[in-house]
Design a protein around this nucleic acid. Structure first.
Lengths: 358, 358
DNA sequence: TTGTAAGCGTTATCAA
DNA sequence: TTGATAACGCTTACAA
């Protein structure tokens, strides 16, 4: 029995290198490199066997830094998610992002990549990080100022944007049909007899998902011949607290409003609380629809009707497309720009919407 | 698909190296290295100025892979969190872990480190990753089989364990006084007149946080002369669903039970739903206390009374101690085992506990 | 105070 | 098929 670890591990011992393996196998380092990288066609079966045996016995573990230096491949993917405004922390509080990350990480690891998860300081770029770390690619979620994307275009690596409507040949992109989602929610209210429907939302920014949901909201109203009232749009931050605040205002100042479409479940849950704060009931007095279908949506009281999207699947898909782009390193194959990927969407009926009767 | 290999993109991006900087500044690469690493005492003020200017003009960005190769410092920290059993995904669904990650990432980035966030396959080790990436340190959350820790001891880097009761001189550790938390919750029930208190919990594993909370539960009972009934312990998985299931069972089969202590908020929320499923009310018929104070705890109905811990602060603290260990690492001096760090705890009274009267 | 040059571990080119 | 060997970009003795 060989003690594989004794050399490697004992505090003062040196790292096992490809050279150690080559010596033990009685071949060159080049041969070892070939075998260990699957280019076995370049060496004899005998050599392959010897190398494998030696590597196994020595418990050889490659050094990715050296690899990265030599061939510019780091097996490292940068993942960027938005931060909270005030504190400098990731917006992981929103379960939607957590699920996204779960999907991304799982898929990446499955292919032997690691994920560097980070936020980005306001106004800072990501170019430095991508160059320092020799990133093989990046997945960017959220929406940033234009200069951020301009920077990103300069760097030579595949990039997948999640939930962005910036269509540029430099970026691949994965999202959902947000306009449709906004339409579906609003339409559902209308079909249930609601006419005065408020929109509670985060900042409506150009090229952001929220803008599209807003557009869908307006389309549904228009299609049904309903009046679009700007006073019914409550726009601020994507937080439970703002949802609550907006709903309180609605419940106390707008008796005619019978429905609230919140562009995220977090806000919808806040809204339900706000309604209750004013002594009213969901959905008896005011109905609510959310967006995302985060896991707590089914756990709250009443369970929330919402537009479901599968964040984990979204993350997996983004990773998948990024990996495809990275591994498609064949310069001879001409580039075919991909259509942005739109993931499926569904209305999940639970108990926060009431059928209005007159 | 986008063609990342097109000439225009490739051609324009030749990497600026330390050599380019040295040539432009008219000094040696050594001088540049000194200046850029803050060892300015080794060179003249004039040289410092020239180097800074040249680096600035060329927009020099160091290559961390090369740096890592040369001096074994990667500025990379591995962060490990548990995975779901069935699917191979991170347990980020539990908001508690999300918050932990927020804290860790923010603190790490502040000091110029990056975080590789990953799960670990069942039965797999972390040794490979740590060697491949030349990690400067690692933060491990959750509890794993013993061989995992044995592996970890072999690798020469500082490691901080979060929420583990494995006290070993190889590891620093950050947690809370879980026994006290369990005691506080149970005591609160007792002070409010409850005598038949159920425990709903994840698997009680040796050295795990749950075991300690369980111990605190028993201590409180004993101290008050109450009978500890093993039938009142419902032990399975840390999920909303199990909390719900257990509570249903309790509500329908144990009319004498008036209180449920759930060892996580997620389970507590499930429990509240389960109680309602059986046509009973919280806290009118059954009171509930949770653990963690995740953000939804205050959003649910009724707002949940719980043992609050600050996950973000916990993450920051863990990162802080890891950085301290890394930066004062003196290879010649054996590490001085630190006392495990215990973060503060508090009972947050909301509306899920009723005062029993007889 | 400065510069030269020898590593660090891999990959990949090019003769043999 | 093979095996030297020159990069890759940086740090750091060691010389000058």
């Amino acid at each position: 029995m060989i003690d594989y670890n004794s050399k490697q591990v004992t505090g003062s011992m040196k790292r096992i290198t490809i050279r150690d393996v080559s010596e033990r196998a009685g071949v060159s380092t080049a041969a070892v490199s070939y075998v260990l990288n699957g280019r076995e066609g370049k060496v004899s079966a005998d050599t392959v066997a010897k190398v494998r045996k030696a590597a196994e016995e020595l418990n050889y573990i490659p050094d990715f830094s050296a690899r990265s230096l030599a061939n510019n491949k780091s097996k490292l993917i940068g993942v960027v998610i938005p931060q909270t405004e005030d504190r400098k922390q990731l917006l992981l509080q929103n379960p939607f992002y957590s699920e996204l990350i779960c999907g991304i990480e799982a898929r990446l690891r499955q292919s032997g990549y690691h994920m560097i998860l980070s936020g980005v300081e306001k106004g800072e770029g990501y170019l430095d990080t991508s160059m320092q770390r020799n990133l093989d690619g990046a997945i960017i979620t959220g929406i940033y100022q234009e200069s951020f994307y301009e920077d990103l275009k300069k760097v030579r690596m595949p990039i997948v944007l999640i939930d962005s409507y910036i269509y540029d040949s430099h970026f691949d992109s994965v999202g959902i049909d947000d306009e449709l989602g906004g339409y579906m929610a609003t339409k559902h209210f209308i079909e249930n007899g609601h006419a005065n429907i408020a929109l509670v939302t985060g900042l409506i920014r150009k090229d952001g998902v929220v803008e599209k949901r807003f557009l869908g909201y307006k389309r549904a109203l228009k299609e049904s011949g309903l009046f679009y009232n700007p006073d019914y749009v409550f726009e601020h931050s994507v937080t439970y607290e703002y949802g609550q605040e907006a709903a309180r205002h609605i419940a106390s100042n707008h008796p005619e409003i019978t429905a609230i479409f919140a562009t995220s479940d977090l806000m919808a849950m806040g809204a339900m609380q706000g309604i209750r704060d004013e002594g009213k009931e969901v959905p008896t007095n005011i109905s609510v629809i959310g967006f995302d279908d985060i896991s707590v949506a089914r756990m709250c009281t009443p369970p929330l009707t919402t537009i479901k999207q599968d964040a984990i699947a979204k993350g997996i898909m983004a990773a998948e497309r990024l990996l495809a782009a990275i591994e498609h390193a064949d310069p001879s194959v001409p580039a075919v720009p991909k259509e942005p990927m739109a993931m499926p969407l569904a209305l999940v009926e639970r108990q926060s919407v009431r059928r209005q009767t007159f």
